[in-house]
C-alpha cells in the first residue's frame, strides 16, 4: 500500500519535472511549446551518452543534461522561437510539432531506434524498508530531487526580483519595457531555464523509463494532461496535478489493472468539464 503510494509519488514527481518547463513557457510566456518533450529526450540522451560512452558518473550527467539543454533552448529561443511570440497559437503549435518530428528523426539517425538503458550507480540501486514498505532507493532520490526543485522554483518565482520582473514582463510587456525591464532577455532566460528543467527531467526519467526516439511523442500527452489539470498560472498547480496523476495512475493500474490505463484520462476529462481553467488555478485569467 505504502509502496504503491511512494511509486505513485515518484512517478508524479518525474512528470512534474518533465512538465514544469512547459508550464513556465505556456503559463508565463503564453507560448505553446509542444517540442518541450524533445528537450526532455535530449537530456536523457545526454545522460546515456555521458554514462555509457564516456563512463562518467550519473551524478555528473544530471547537471550536464540541465546545462546542455538550457544552452540548446537559449539558442533555439534566440533563433527560432523569438519569431513566433506574437504569432497565433496555431502557428506555434504547428511550428513546435514540426520540431518534435525533426528531433525524433534526428535522434533516430544519430543514436538508433533501440531503447537506451541507463545503468544507475550502485548507491542508487536496491530497496530499503520504510515503515514496513519496501521502496526503491532511486525512487526516493527522485522524490527528494524533485521536491527540492519544486520549492526552489516556487521561491524564485514568487520571492525574488527576477520572478517579479518575469511576472511583470508576462502580464504587461509594454509597461514592463517602459520601466526599464529587459523583456527579451528575461524571456530568453526563462525559456532556457524551462528547457534545462526538461533536460534534467529526461535524465532523471531515463533511470526509470525507457528512452527511445519516440519519447517526446509518448510523453507529450502526459505533459499536456499535467498542464491542463493543474492550470498554468502557478507552480503549485502543476505540482499537485502531477502528484495526483502519478498516484492515480499507479494505484489504478495496481488495484484495477483492467482499466488502469484509462484512469488519468478520466481524471483529465472530469477536471476539464468541472474546472476548465485547471484544478488549482484561479478562475478568470
Amino acid at each position: 500500500m505504502l509502496t504503491i503510494l511512494f511509486d505513485g509519488i515518484s512517478y508524479g514527481m518525474l512528470l512534474f519535472v518533465l512538465a514544469v518547463g512547459l508550464c513556465v513557457t505556456l503559463g508565463l510566456m503564453n507560448f505553446i511549446n509542444l517540442a518541450h518533450g524533445a528537450f526532455a529526450m535530449g537530456g536523457g540522451y545526454v545522460a546515456v551518452v555521458m554514462m555509457n560512452r564516456y563512463g562518467l558518473s550519473f551524478y555528473w550527467s544530471l547537471p550536464a543534461a540541465f546545462i546542455l539543454m538550457a544552452a540548446l533552448g537559449a539558442v533555439l529561443e534566440r533563433t527560432l522561437y523569438v519569431r513566433l511570440y506574437d504569432k497565433s497559437h496555431l502557428d506555434q503549435v504547428l511550428f513546435s510539432i514540426g520540431l518534435v518530428f525533426m528531433s525524433v528523426a534526428a535522434v533516430d539517425y544519430a543514436m538508433g531506434a533501440n531503447q537506451q538503458i541507463v545503468n544507475l550507480p550502485p548507491s542508487l540501486q536496491g530497496r530499503v524498508e520504510f515503515f514496513g514498505a519496501s521502496i526503491g532507493v532511486y525512487r526516493i532520490f527522485v522524490i527528494i530531487a524533485c521536491a527540492v526543485l519544486a520549492l526552489a522554483l516556487q521561491f524564485v518565482l514568487s520571492r525574488t526580483r527576477f520572478g517579479a520582473r518575469l511576472r511583470a514582463a508576462v502580464d504587461e510587456p509594454r509597461v514592463a519595457r517602459g520601466i526599464g525591464i529587459d523583456v527579451a532577455s528575461i524571456f530568453a532566460l526563462t525559456f532556457a531555464f524551462g528547457s534545462g528543467l526538461a533536460g534534467l527531467g529526461g535524465a532523471l526519467g531515463a533511470g526509470v523509463f525507457s528512452l527511445d526516439p519516440t519519447f517526446p511523442l509518448k510523453f507529450m500527452i502526459y505533459f499536456l494532461i499535467v498542464v491542463s489539470v493543474g492550470g498554468v498560472t502557478t507552480i503549485s498547480g502543476p505540482f499537485l496535478a502531477s502528484l495526483l496523476l502519478g498516484v492515480a495512475d499507479v494505484a489504478g493500474k495496481y488495484y484495477i489493472p483492467a482499466v488502469g490505463g484509462f484512469i488519468i484520462y478520466t481524471i483529465m476529462v472530469a477536471v476539464l468539464i468541472l474546472r476548465p481553467q485547471g484544478l488549482f488555478s484561479r478562475a478568470g485569467r
Binding site: 509502496t3 504503491i4 511509486d7 512517478y11 526509470v208 523509463f209 525507457s210 509518448k218 510523453f219 495512475d249 499507479v250 494505484a251 489504478g252 493500474k253 495496481y254 489493472p257 483492467a258 488502469g260 490505463g261
Partner: peptide, 17 residues
C-alpha cells in the same frame, strides 16, 4: 494474469501487484 498496455512507460504498479 496481468496485462500492461502496449505503449506503457511505467511497469511499477503491475510488478508490485
Amino acid at each position: 494474469t496481468l496485462r500492461a498496455p502496449l505503449r506503457n512507460a511505467e511497469f511499477a504498479p503491475f510488478l508490485q501487484k
